[in-house]
Design a binder for these strands. Structure first.
Lengths: 248, 248
DNA sequence: CGACGTATTGACTCGGCTCAAAACCTGTGG
DNA sequence: CCACAGGTTTTGAGCCGAGTCAATACGTCG
């Protein structure tokens, strides 16, 4: 399985890492410095829980490398994967806008590097610094849009189309044919992420391979006809292929 | 079918209506006045389109009465209902945070009264007035949470449970038994809202009636045992009954 | 009363789930 | 270098929930 590359030496420097984030970029120096001082780099092994649903939101996290699963659990033990996030994404930040409690859980699905930052400081920065509030608005709204598409996808696309859609989002339109992809994490996780069982994933991927010209070998996927694939997928979606803003 | 009550004379007064909204409450008087002057009450008949996906976001709306359907349409004509909103909700406001284009469509499903407001003014108010930005953050984040639950519900609950969940959200926990409900809009719309076909809705509602003690007569539903209903529904959900923040 | 839209029912199909077994990888230690 | 253990993925058989299409019932409004 293809792991995300380890963070470079440079990215392990907290102030540098923060400066690469829109949230901190425009922030008053006063706050940004306090953040840099009160934050901490953590190396998490596979399976580590960052926080659980209903935990008080003491910290939020900026991911430097590796994949993190966001999920909720039902009373009788079933799990829904809300999203998978990596590299450059923040998690747990939105809890401070709700009731100070996490509304989902987060777990590392492989070795992960994060910067851990204090939630109360973010709360303060947002309420006192306008630029920070605006950056937060931008990030929330992107999130919202992503989730709307998620709902659409779950109600209108079948298993094969959802997989195709997932693959398309790994393609960048300017790449030349054939496009070689590496699945970013385990197939069973992709399945969960797309709201299906791994058996269904396996069969649906086979179907997709038969019906569009795809080649699959382990976690390597070769797309030889983008048109065909996007035709197959996007007919059941409200966005056409280079799905703006929904990459990554 | 039960329509929302018509707006009272008082609510038809724009400044008063705006003052009832968190978004405008804390806003600088300068902006609030400009909003009041440049806005307009509109009475929309059933079926009126407020805007379509990909329309440039010139206006946003505050609903005073009636139900509005938010939806997206696929290339081949299928429709996904993202949400149903009414009374006191704003729609189309978040487009200004994206690329100035609506990411879903909105249509009145019955006679609806709205206040139409200019998007560019909102954009300006947010970037210049901190309180407004904060109010916007609050509203977006509530929205986000709602949508996460939607995703969970679609992946983990079956048709009957989703219907039960919908009914539970119409109940207020302090009401005394038996609770008499009126379905807020057509059954076919509820079905679409819950991501199922109306035939399935009809059958699943029957199943729910058999398995929990529900009585249904047209659009009137009587819940005689809340415990039983919430047991049936919430076992497949990460929130327990009086689902905080998810009412309305 | 008749007509139209909405809701229900029936018979059938099909997609995705379940459970169980086999195949495939990957890493470990002899 | 091979054998083996563990996890992950694939395959198979059977089932069940939800979708489809078509016919019927219900409600409401003219």
């Amino acid at each position: 399985m293809a792991s995300t590359a380890s963070p470079s030496r440079e990215e392990l420097h907290i102030p540098t890492a923060l400066d690469n984030q829109p949230l901190f970029r425009g922030m008053k120096a006063e706050f940004r410095d306090t953040f840099a001082q009160s934050s901490q780099i953590q190396i998490l092994s596979k399976g580590t829980i960052l926080f659980l649903q209903d935990d008080p939101a003491e910290w939020f996290y900026l991911i430097l490398s590796g994949w993190v699963k966001l999920f909720t659990e039902t009373m009788d033990g079933d799990e829904a994967v809300i999203d998978m996030v990596s590299n450059g994404h923040m998690i747990g930040d939105s809890a401070i806008l709700e009731d100070g409690v996490h509304s989902f859980g987060a777990a590392a699905v492989e070795p992960v590097t994060v910067i851990r930052l204090p939630s109360n400081l973010l709360k303060q920065a947002i309420s006192e610094d306008h630029q920070t509030a605006l950056a937060m608005l931008g990030s929330l709204s992107r999130h919202r849009k992503r989730q709307s598409r998620e709902i659409e996808s779950l109600t209108l696309q079948n298993a094969s189309q959802r997989i195709g859609c997932f693959l398309l989002r790994l393609c960048h339109p300017e790449q030349s044919m054939p496009i070689e992809l590496t699945l970013p994490y385990d197939k069973s996780l992709i399945a969960a992420r797309l709201g299906m069982k791994s058996e269904t994933f396996s069969r649906a991927l086979n179907k997709l391979r038969k019906e569009t010209s795809l080649a699959i070998k382990g976690s390597m996927v070769t797309v030889s006809d983008l048109e065909e694939l996007s035709g197959y997928v996007c007919s059941a979606c409200s966005n056409e292929f280079p799905c703006k803003d929904l990459h990554g």
